[in-house]
Simulated scan of single mutants.
Amino acid sequence: MRSGEKVYGLFNDSFPPVLDGVTLTVQNYVKKLVESGRKTCVVTPWNPVQEPYDGFLLYRYFSLPIFSRHPYRYGYPKLDPFIWRNLNRTPFALVHAHCPFSSGRLALHVARKQHVPLVATFHSKYKTDLEHSLPSWMVRRVMRRIMSFFEAADHVWIPQQRVEDTVREYGYRGKLTVVENGIDFSMSSFADTSAYKVEARKRLGLAPDEMVLLFVGQHIKEKGVEIIINAVDRLRDLPVKMLFVGTGYAVDEMNSMIKQLGLSGRVKLYGVIGSRQRLMDFYAAAHLFLFPSFYDNAPLVVREAAVMGTPSILLRGSTAAEVIADGFNGFLAENTPESYADIVRRLFADKDCIMRVGRNASATLARPWSDIMDDVMQRYQYIIESYGRR
């Protein structure tokens, strides 16, 4: 079977206009698969905001908003007869689920009905997500369903080795394969990156003497946004500017907290930035990327900051910090505002250290999607051929 004769299915519960790390991963999978000449289909819940797309199939199905996790939506394919018709008439070579919820269940349906392999990537700490909005008895029930989904997959991928700890904690005992995520930003050299950083600060209207701190991601408590704001409160004697990019259920509380602490002149929330070029400016303009999260597995944002020469401060012992050597390609802090503030204060007086660690971060953490997807497509081909021999 030639790869171009059938369709590669990518299933996820979010897709633009919803933006997060998993969405970006799926977007880059689509881009590289289409560029390689492979027919590709994305299956995702319907969204009232429609963005243009070209070169691939896009099947959306009935959904409703998740009010506790705006702007996410939950899909209800059982209420949408059209999605089943579209899936049944599409000849898939392989289906890859990036989420175990409604889209993942659709991927499992296709795999069983069409007798094709199912790959499932374990991207998130799903139990933490559920505990935010569900009672404990329901969390246990949903987690059993999630793990039954992964147990039904032919191949389970994780984005970095340390994620195995979470998967095993959840009860999965099968084989795991590490398949990293990549970066769609690039600079030809670190000298070019340094020059770009200067221009980016000018474009964003940031003063030359300001130390710029950045967070990009969901504005939720699990990401440690309150720790960041409290850390900035402890740095009032320094010319520090904190920039938040993204959205989430905690935005209103963050705004209230900023006003109560009198930090409106030091902390700014920019909302979602859809332009990758403009987002690149934010990463470049920052001196440090702050990411106090035990919630994340393998956050793309840390790697995106790294490619722009901006090192991150992560939590010691977190899954995300697996790729960080403290003081070499990033910095590790304790889970307190005081610890974050102390590191920022020390580095404010040692800009050479920031530059050195930023250079190392760029060299060690920024692997382009083109390299990743060469590996992915080889794995896809092997999985398809192996499945056909069973």
Rank of each mutant, 00 (worst) to 15 (best):
S136R: 07
W137H: 14
W137L: 14
M138V: 12
V139Y: 14
V139D: 05
R140K: 15
R140L: 15
R140Y: 15
R140C: 13
R140N: 09
R141G: 03
R141D: 01
V142I: 10
V142M: 11
V142N: 02
M143H: 07
M143Q: 12
M143D: 08
R144E: 04
R145P: 10
R145M: 07
R145C: 13
R145I: 11
R145G: 07
I146V: 13
I146G: 02
I146T: 09
I146Y: 03
M147W: 09
M147R: 10
S148T: 15
S148Q: 14
F149C: 04
F149L: 13
F149A: 02
F149I: 08
F149S: 02
F149N: 01
F150T: 02
E151H: 08
E151A: 08
A152P: 13
A152M: 06
A152D: 13
A152T: 09
A153D: 12
A153W: 15
D154R: 07
D154E: 07
D154A: 10
H155F: 11
H155N: 08
H155G: 02
V156K: 01
W157V: 00
W157D: 01
P159M: 12
P159R: 05
P159S: 14
Q160T: 00
Q160I: 01
Q161Y: 09
R162D: 09
R162W: 12
R162T: 08
V163Q: 00
V163D: 02
V163C: 04
V163E: 00
E164L: 07
E164A: 07
E164M: 07
D165N: 07
D165V: 11
D165A: 11
T166P: 01
V167K: 03
V167S: 02
R168I: 12
R168Q: 13
R168E: 12
E169F: 15
E169N: 13
E169W: 06
Y170C: 14
Y170W: 06
Y170V: 08
G171D: 02
G171I: 00
G171A: 12
Y172Q: 09
Y172D: 04
Y172C: 08
R173G: 12
R173L: 10
G174F: 06
G174K: 12
K175H: 15
K175W: 11
K175A: 11
L176M: 06
L176N: 02
T177K: 11
T177P: 06
T177A: 11
T177Q: 09
T177G: 02
T177F: 05
V178R: 03
V178S: 02
V178F: 07
V178A: 04
V178G: 01
V179I: 06
E180K: 03
E180Q: 04
N181K: 04
N181G: 01
N181E: 04
G182I: 03
I183D: 01
I183Y: 00
D184G: 04
D184P: 00
D184V: 04
S186D: 06
S186N: 08
S186E: 10
M187V: 15
M187S: 05
M187D: 03
M187L: 11
S188Y: 10
S188P: 09
S188K: 15
S188C: 09
S189W: 06
S189P: 13
F190T: 02
A191P: 02
A191D: 12
A191E: 14
D192H: 12
D192R: 11
